[in-house]
């Protein structure tokens, strides 16, 4: 019997991801040149930007899966929303930390109350709230429903936060890549795209495993419940070895 959540598919996927990380290290630290303006610090971008993109993608999956859960009410969507939010939170934490390490030498501070930083920090706190709802000791269906609504509310909240903080103050640079004339050197751009691909693969890989673990956790819960019920039944039938005559309704 298979005693892990791995399968041939995930092993292949995992191997590709690890090779991808090796390639990203090679391109990010050795082959790609230093940036004209930022110098060696630009290398932080190969972690910072991909984790941010993939994290935001992960939360989009959570919102979509929450909507799907509310429509379909199947365990599958619930598990997808849960797993995606967890992995997104880890990636977003990596984004925040790498951004701080980059910000200190570049801007002179670890943290600044810029629009995008503030929105990201708020999103992080919101997701922590979402994961707190996920850990509530409740009936599973009820918790899934509550979490789905909280997950659904992530989207409008993030949009409003974004606009509020953009008007408030902006220091973070605007989009660099998603423009008609990318303002970025060829090899740097390639490394960045490689980073995006690798982190996306990492997300899928972790997602499959997390999904399977969550699914098994639910099955263990069910099993525990079934065992407990069976035990109570046995106790009851043992105590009633000599069945009493059924006289009227049990009070």
């Amino acid at each position: 019997m298979n005693d892990s959540t791995a399968s041939t598919g995930t092993r292949v996927l995992g191997s590709i991801t690890l090779v991808g990380f090796a390639a990203l290290l090679l391109f990010g630290l050795v082959l790609s040149p230093a940036d004209a303006a930022q110098g060696e610090l630009v290398r932080m971008m190969y972690v910072h930007v991909p984790t941010a993109f993939v994290a935001f993608g992960a939360f989009t999956v959570t919102v979509a899966a929450s909507v799907a859960y509310l429509l379909r009410r199947t365990e599958w969507w619930d598990l997808v929303a849960h797993g995606s939010a967890e992995i997104g939170a880890v990636l977003l934490a990596a984004t925040l930390v790498s951004g701080m390490l980059w910000g200190r030498p570049t801007w002179g501070v670890y943290w600044t109350w810029d629009a995008r930083l503030t929105t990201t920090a708020l999103l992080f706190v919101l997701v922590l709230g979402y994961l707190a709802v996920r850990r509530l000791p409740l009936d599973r269906d009820k918790r899934a429903g509550l979490a789905a609504v909280v997950g659904l509310l992530l989207l409008p909240t993030t949009i409003v936060c974004h606009y509020a903080t953009t008007w408030w103050r902006t220091l973070h640079q605007g989009p660099t890549i998603a423009r008609a004339d990318p303002q970025i050197d060829g090899l740097l751009l390639f490394t960045l795209v490689l980073g995006l691909a690798v982190f996306a693969l990492l997300y899928v890989w972790m997602m499959v495993h997390r999904f399977r673990v969550l699914y098994l956790e639910h099955r263990v819960e069910d099993l525990g419940l079934d065992t407990a019920i069976a035990e109570r039944r046995r106790e009851a039938s043992g105590a009633l070895a000599t069945p009493r005559p059924a006289t009227g309704p049990v009070t």
């Binding site: 708020l122 706190v125 709802v133 509020a164």
Partner: peptide, 20 residues
């Protein structure tokens, strides 16, 4: 059961734009 602690955690980040 944890309503006293979970409400501020969920609500305050959501109303942060109102504060700004």
């Amino acid at each position: 059961r944890v309503k006293e602690t979970i409400l501020p955690l969920l609500l305050l980040p959501v109303v942060a734009p109102v504060l700004v």
